[in-house]
Design a protein around this nucleic acid. Structure first.
Lengths: 201, 201
DNA sequence: GAAGAATACGAACGATCGTACTTATGAACA
DNA sequence: TGTTCATAAGTACGATCGTTCGTATTCTTC
């Protein structure tokens, strides 16, 4: 039910969601959906919360479970993010890449929720980078937030461009960019090479 | 008339545009707008064309007029793009950053027009980089398209984030990232320093 | 100055939007 | 078994959507 809503929100936008179409697609009645969520805005908030769960399940949790703190986890997070986008977990690519641009100029509780979830992810990535710094794995880096900015720039650009051009090339561009950046900061080439390597399989 | 349409499209999206609201805002009648453009899709195409004109006037043309080919023009293009976003030439930031994400999963003539205009800009940036390469101003660079990908990633990320957080900080992040990247490619520090320097005044 | 095309208008079309109200259905609990 | 209460459905509301009429006005062109 909500999963279908999240899916279509990445294509038609969070404002493009309509209670009527959502009802038809899920087999329920229009009023059933309406009373379930109370209002469209609350539906949108529920969709954001559901997307956050999926994102954590697909990107954050696997990296936490699979790799220890440090540069290796940073690389795993980046690779898992690219897989999450590439595998079209949502039809229209990354949910937050789509909705944060849609709502960037629309103040309100929905934007606040999107910002909160996005910040959560970026804070986690920043902390992960800081762990790598503390371990001496990125000797030439002095500002973790700056690196986070640069990396999510690559990730989201790859997401949008692969959709726009229905091409895998942007993902390779992002991988090249990520590896080059980490290499320039003195990261271990062997760990860095895992970014574009064979899929998690 | 069209300028107001472009403006609101960056906030509400190109699909969020409605003929009725556009008529009210411009003082015309609803049917006047409808017959003028023929259909909503053709209105959207007209809006894309109008935004392309503004973008050229604000970013491409000034850089061409002000600086010669080579690294200096690349830096000018990047600085002018950031100013174009920062100055809120459109209320919702860069028009193409907003609409390319909105339409990335919606095939059709509107997406085609957005892709065409975006590619035009990126091709121009790539050619400009190649001129700098040919002049030996970026001795460590071997793939202009790769650098274009990385730079526009920074630009668009700064645009969206400055809107999301109503902050100027993302622009400084982008400037730092752009300068660091060009420096790592062996660019002249004096030219590169113009990116975040005093506004065009 | 008359005839023509082009432009903008008000009005209305069917469709769909978000929401509210009313009515069954069905499980939980006394 | 009878009552309560939450869930979902059906219906309807006013508003707005994109589009299409027929008409009035403006402008061009003979």
């Amino acid at each position: 039910m909500l999963s279908h809503a999240v899916d279509t929100a990445t294509v038609d936008g969070l404002d493009g969601l309509t209670i009527g179409r959502l009802a038809d697609a899920s087999g329920h009645s229009k009023s059933g959906i309406a009373t379930l969520f109370g209002s469209k805005e609350q539906l949108q908030l529920a969709v954001v919360a559901a997307a956050r769960e999926v994102f954590i399940d697909r990107v954050v949790a696997p990296a936490r479970a699979r790799t220890p703190r440090g540069l290796i986890r940073v690389c795993t997070l980046l690779g898992d993010w690219l897989d999450y986008s590439r595998d079209r977990v949502f039809r229209g690519g990354c949910f937050f890449a789509a909705t944060s641009v849609e709502f960037d100029a629309k103040p309100g509780v929905v934007r606040d929720a999107i910002v909160a979830a996005s910040s959560e992810w970026e804070d986690y990535l920043t902390v992960s980078i800081e762990h790598a710094m503390a371990a001496g794995e990125l000797p030439l880096l002095d500002d973790a937030r700056q690196l986070t900015f640069e990396m999510v720039s690559f990730l989201e650009a790859a997401n949008t461009r692969s959709l726009l051009h229905t091409s895998e090339e942007p993902y390779r561009r992002a991988e090249v960019a990520l590896r080059a950046r980490l290499t320039s900061l003195g990261g271990d080439p062997e760990l860095i090479a895992t970014i574009g390597a064979a899929p998690a399989a």
